[in-house]
Design a binder for these strands. Structure first.
Lengths: 164, 164
DNA sequence: TATTGCAGGTGATGATTCGGGCCACGTTTC
DNA sequence: GAAACGTGGCCCGAATCATCACCTGCAATA
């Protein structure tokens, strides 16, 4: 058994073992598991950062700038990543018929397949968590989290997006 | 009001608007706020990644390897960062008297001051959240999260650390 | 009315910074 | 010697900034 004084010797400071760290560790673990399962399914060309695209792209057409806003990266970074993902065959970048400056980013068939696998995989990971912490507890956690995030004005909530 | 079909056009896939994303967005927002407040207090030489050190270092002496484990990076990466943070004056790196291979990483006075500011800042950020989502709700969220994380065997929990 | 001419949006490119991993190496300990 | 600790060098991925080119819509003007 440790005394309080001893404990203070160890983890004394604000950045450890609190809300921030819990969020961070859980989030990182989630990402690791998803990436690992993608590898298992043969997606060895997908890197974790690519979720910035696939998490923000549905079946409609979206522009580079819009994707960048959703993923909270610069338009340049998103453009570069999209170019690579196009090369890998997961998205197409066609010139927008209405506005020739812009490009329509769409999932290809291969991309849709990947997205569907992502759905399954996230469900699997969630099930792994549910097994450990209990389904009810996990549901409660997600409810708490959604409630909190809804009340913060984080301005990149999926509900507000409109594709074409 | 949107139809289900329309909704599916937008955010159809697994990586969006679920537990993973909620954790991620909340965590990122937390980090942004902390870094911003550090800047306000004049710590313009501290970058977000440095939390890997300050979140895992108390008042005791710790080795590079141990810090690397706690922060989940390689000891090379940690060593590089510690060298920089030493140059900035926040930690000292003295040769361990007992084992001449190893180095004792300690917070300097300046480092302790920073750590104390970190405590205040994280409290401030938490208060900002509490104001938006309600103190009770935030407490409940943290409790849910801690309960979940405790039950996962994430093997980098502060409780198990022992400094000297 | 028809034309011209910008302002501002959209995207590509290059240079740079930063974080971090891997390999190899020297040193110390056991 | 073998294993542990830390360092140096090299490379890659990610992300930014600054800049350039281009398209479009709109307004001022001849």
């Amino acid at each position: 058994m440790q005394s309080t004084a001893q404990r203070n010797q160890h983890v004394a400071f604000g950045l450890s073992n609190n809300l921030a760290r819990l969020l961070r560790e859980f989030s990182r673990d989630f990402e690791r598991r998803i990436h690992s399962k993608l590898l298992q399914r043969g997606y060895d060309d997908i890197r974790p950062s690519h979720s910035a695209v696939f998490a923000n792209l549905g079946l409609g057409a979206v522009r580079v700038t819009e994707l960048a806003v959703r993923a909270q990266v610069t338009q340049q970074a998103m453009g570069k990543m999209l170019k690579e993902i196009e090369r890998l065959g997961y998205v197409s970048r066609d010139i927008d018929s209405g506005d020739k400056r812009a490009k329509e980013i769409r999932l290809t068939e291969k991309g849709i397949q990947l997205a569907e696998d992502c759905i399954q995989i996230t469900a699997e990971v969630r099930a792994e968590y549910a097994q450990r912490v209990g389904a009810a507890e996990l549901d409660q956690l997600e409810a708490c989290l959604r409630n909190a995030v809804d009340k913060l004005d984080l301005d990149y909530l999926p509900e507000s997006w409109t594709d074409r």
